[in-house]
């Protein structure tokens, strides 16, 4: 499902600035961008162009030094810590280049991580949901496998299933194919495109122009600014 000009704006970044401690130049420098509902946006750029920093700000993993990120009209950068935790639990989902699974939990348990509350156990409905997500990413039958027993592509699929299990509104993917071979990488992009067609909004950071061409819109970054798009 590709975005249309009439689609409502889901995420809006205004004048973002972020300088990493010790760095001379800002990683993100007065940058503006937006994501529309149902859009698959790719952020292209060379190493050090600031694209991952931008993704981490948009997904509320880090805070900018200046600027705003509006999600459904509300500035998430000004929100308290617990509200941003909640946002990452429910509305946002992040997939990293390295799959970042807990090695001692099974594939199913890794998918269930965002559901953990404390002493109250995971419900049967949550378990079913997680199983369905694993099935959706093509991993049925591997629910009880530990990450060490899965291939790189399978691990990335588990990470995507985990990202989607709670019904996230936006999927943030930081170089999701970066550590995979080209065939596996292509299959992951294909999976993301399928998910986008089902209505999921995605922002993907990549340095691969071919993968970027599969998305509905691309922006290119250089020196922390938008060069194109």
């Amino acid at each position: 499902m590709s975005a249309t000009p009439a689609a409502p704006c889901l995420l809006h970044a205004l004048n973002l600035v972020k300088t990493h401690p010790g760095a001379e130049k800002p990683a993100v420098d007065h940058l503006n961008m937006h994501l529309e509902q149902g859009e698959f946006l790719s952020i292209l750029g060379r190493s050090g162009s600031g694209k991952s920093t931008l993704l981490h700000i948009l997904s509320s993993l880090i805070l900018p030094d200046a600027g705003k990120v509006l999600f459904q009209g509300r500035d998430i950068c000004a929100a308290p810590d617990n509200e941003r935790n909640h946002l990452r639990r429910r509305d946002f989902a992040v997939v990293f280049q390295q799959h970042h699974l807990l090695p001692y939990l099974s594939a199913l348990e890794n998918v269930l991580l965002p559901f953990l509350r404390g002493l109250s156990p995971i419900t049967a409905q949550e378990q079913d949901n997680a199983r369905r997500m694993l099935e959706k990413v093509g991993l049925s039958g591997k629910e009880n496998s530990l990450p060490g027993r899965l291939s790189g592509g399978e691990q990335q699929r588990v990470a995507i299933a985990r990202a989607l299990a709670r019904g996230a509104r936006i999927l943030f993917a930081d170089e999701p194919t970066g550590s995979l071979d080209s065939v596996t990488g292509t299959s992951i992009i294909q999976l993301l495109r399928d998910l986008n067609r089902e209505g999921l909004s995605i922002i993907m950071v990549t340095h691969n122009p071919e993968f970027a061409s599969w998305t509905s819109r691309s922006i290119t970054m250089g020196d922390g600014r938008t060069l194109q798009g």
Binding site: D81, N85, R88, R89, H100, L113, P114, G118
Partner: peptide, 19 residues
């Protein structure tokens, strides 16, 4: 640290990581 970062990234509060 990577595991903790992951827990926080999927929405674990500081109190949950502490627990």
């Amino acid at each position: 640290r990577r595991e903790i970062g992951l827990m926080r990234a999927v929405g674990f509060s500081r109190a949950r990581v502490f627990a």
